[in-house]
């Protein structure tokens, strides 16, 4: 397999093949945890950590594992890392664990992770696998934070409320609030709000993509008509 460039891996992870917006993988944790931007960020970072670790491990062992037991081995690797990350969160980010705890084991079922393991890391060298894991993880985290931010802002009128759970006491005043009187759109916090917001985000991405495409075709046409005029 030809190794794509690192730049390509990064744009793929962040935009072209964004796991949440394009591949639509990992919707379960995505929709469940994004009630606030802080929760989204926490879930995103945990997912990224697992993605990088599992991609690296799977790339290292790719020649060792026979194809017939490939998938069970991948699942084993991912499940071990998820459990380890869960224990670490419980030990060092306990407050956040209380909020996200229920969803951390769900990272195992995040198809984005086994998807990258199977589709990329099992055929790539260590370094591209690491970059791919990181880029895909950050792309996923971005969407979690944006979705969490939108839902939190619409639903509670705050942004990064209780960010100190994740980022330490220094971030306690980091949050933004519209004040106590803002009642919020309850829908945004409930599961349907998550689907609606995600749908709008996907529509937004497609809009930007088609805009870029139109610009490119215009650019392509212009020099063509210029040469035609010359002849």
């Amino acid at each position: 397999m030809s190794q794509p460039t690192y730049g390509r891996l990064i744009t793929d992870g962040l935009w072209t093949n964004n796991q949440a917006l394009v591949a639509m993988l990992g919707l379960c944790p995505l929709l469940a945890t994004t009630t606030t931007a802080t929760n989204g960020l926490g879930m995103g970072l945990a997912t990224t950590a697992v993605l990088v670790l599992s991609n690296a491990t799977i790339s290292l062992i790719r020649n060792l594992v026979r194809p017939e037991v490939r998938l069970p081995v991948f699942v084993l690797v991912i499940a071990s890392f998820v459990t380890a990350v869960e224990l670490l969160m419980k030990a060092y980010l306990y407050e956040l664990y209380l909020v996200l705890g229920l969803f951390i084991p769900l990272i195992v079922t995040n198809c984005a992770i086994i998807g990258r393991a199977e589709a990329f890391a099992s055929k790539a060298n260590l370094r591209p696998a690491l970059v791919d894991g990181l880029a895909m993880g950050i792309g996923f985290t971005l969407i979690l934070v944006i979705l969490g931010g939108i839902r939190e802002f619409l639903g509670q009128g705050t942004l990064f409320y209780q960010a100190d759970l994740l980022l330490g006491a220094a971030a306690a005043n980091f949050g933004l609030s519209l004040g106590e009187d803002f009642n919020g759109a309850l829908l945004a916090i409930l599961p349907p709000g998550a689907f609606i917001c995600l749908g709008l985000l996907i529509a937004g991405k497609n809009l930007i993509d088609s805009g870029i495409q139109r610009l490119q075709t215009i650019k392509l046409k212009q020099p063509l008509s210029a040469t035609q005029a010359a002849t």
Binding site: I61, L64, V65, R66, V69, P72, V73, L76, V77, A79, S80, F81, T83, A84, L87, L88, K90, A91, Y92, Y94
Partner: peptide, 25 residues
């Protein structure tokens, strides 16, 4: 054998993390 070896390694990773974090948790 490979599958078994990975199962053991996976349990090892979890066991070590557990031992490291147990008291703190």
């Amino acid at each position: 054998f490979i599958l078994g070896a990975f199962a053991v390694a996976g349990v090892g990773v979890v066991a070590v993390t557990h031992a490291m974090t147990d008291q703190r948790i």
